[in-house]
């Protein structure tokens, strides 16, 4: 409800944001799409030629792609399982009466604010290093042989690091939602004779379910694009053991200078992310109407 004057002003004022984002989305994305149909290598400039779907064929049939696809899935799923179950448990714990709740909360949230390269390096060197890492010391103290995490379980190690970074996010959001639960509802359930477990299953969990879905979707968007943690720990190796799609595209285009193949991979990544994004947008959109 407004006047023409303010409507015109509004159009004018929203346009920088719209134009910038439009430019940001359309220009590079259509370039990527275009490159994905070219035989285009940065090492041989000027030799670009149209090769149709060859890049896609090459990329999608490359064993590395299947490895990366599997790794991407494991990475996302592994982190989700750890952070959601851990997040629910931690949120329930932090919601209990205790001393120093504020401080505990701060301790739990902290990893989320650590930049990815720092957390990856700290874990890699100071904890998982087979010679000087704390885990190695602990193993030796117990008379066991130190485990070389990144050599023998690279993907698992990365999952642990990423889960440590994202556990606070899930906890924080689920705790917020838990605290918004009407306590009278729980008291009423208590009066109705519901025991702890059934209170959790029938009241608390349904109350959190929407937030859990949102956490899953948002984390998935970010987890599909995990990059820095892989770059500074394993460089995707050994072999392709810890390469995800994002890293594969990076390696293809900026390490092997194969712009065409990398672009095809980029488009594949966009398609995958869109599938998740559609669900997420639906959830947010519903919220917008309310």
């Amino acid at each position: 409800m407004a006047t023409d004057h303010s409507r015109i002003a509004a159009r004018f004022m929203i346009s920088p944001a719209v134009l910038l984002l439009l430019g940001w989305m359309i220009v590079p994305l259509s370039m990527t799409l275009y490159f994905s149909f070219l035989d285009y290598n940065l090492l041989s400039p000027g030799m670009e030629e149209w090769i149709g779907f060859m890049n896609y064929e090459y990329f999608l049939t490359d064993p590395a792609f299947f490895a990366a696809l599997g790794n991407t899935f494991l990475l996302v799923a592994g982190v989700l399982v750890i952070t959601i179950t851990g997040g629910v448990a931690l949120a329930l714990l932090l919601d209990q009466p205790m001393w120093g709740q504020g401080i505990v909360r701060i301790l739990v949230i902290a990893p989320f604010f650590v930049m990815p390269t720092v957390s990856a390096l700290v874990w890699k060197n100071m904890f998982m290093n087979p010679v000087n890492g704390l885990f190695a010391h602990a193993a030796k103290a117990m008379g066991l042989a130190p485990f070389d995490f990144f050599a023998h379980a690279p993907l698992f190690s990365i999952i642990m690091i990423v889960a440590w970074q994202w556990l606070p996010f899930a906890t924080l959001i689920l705790l917020t939602v838990l605290q918004s639960l009407d306590k009278e509802q729980l008291e009423a359930a208590k009066m109705d004779g519901a025991r702890k477990m059934s209170r959790f299953v029938h009241i608390i969990l349904p109350h959190m379910s929407r937030a859990i879905t949102v956490v899953i979707l948002i984390q998935t968007i970010f987890l599909l694009s995990i990059f820095a943690e892989i770059l500074v720990t394993t460089n995707g190796g050994p072999g392709y053991a810890s390469t995800n799609i994002t890293y594969l595209v990076y390696a293809q285009s900026l390490l092997q200078f194969d712009v065409g193949g990398g672009s095809a991979g980029g488009i594949v990544a966009v398609v995958l992310a869109n599938i998740v994004a559609i669900f997420l947008m639906r959830m947010i959109g519903k919220n917008l109407e309310a």
Binding site: A2, L21, L29, L224, S253, L254, G266, A277
Partner: peptide, 30 residues
């Protein structure tokens, strides 16, 4: 403050750009 019919869609579209995986545009930007 001056919502129009398309406002919601613009808002959602803006959000959707955030969901674009960076590798999708890495090469052109580079």
């Amino acid at each position: 403050f001056v919502p129009a019919k398309g406002t919601k869609n613009v808002l959602m579209w803006m959000l959707s750009t955030k969901m674009l995986p960076p590798v999708g545009v890495l090469i052109p930007i580079y």
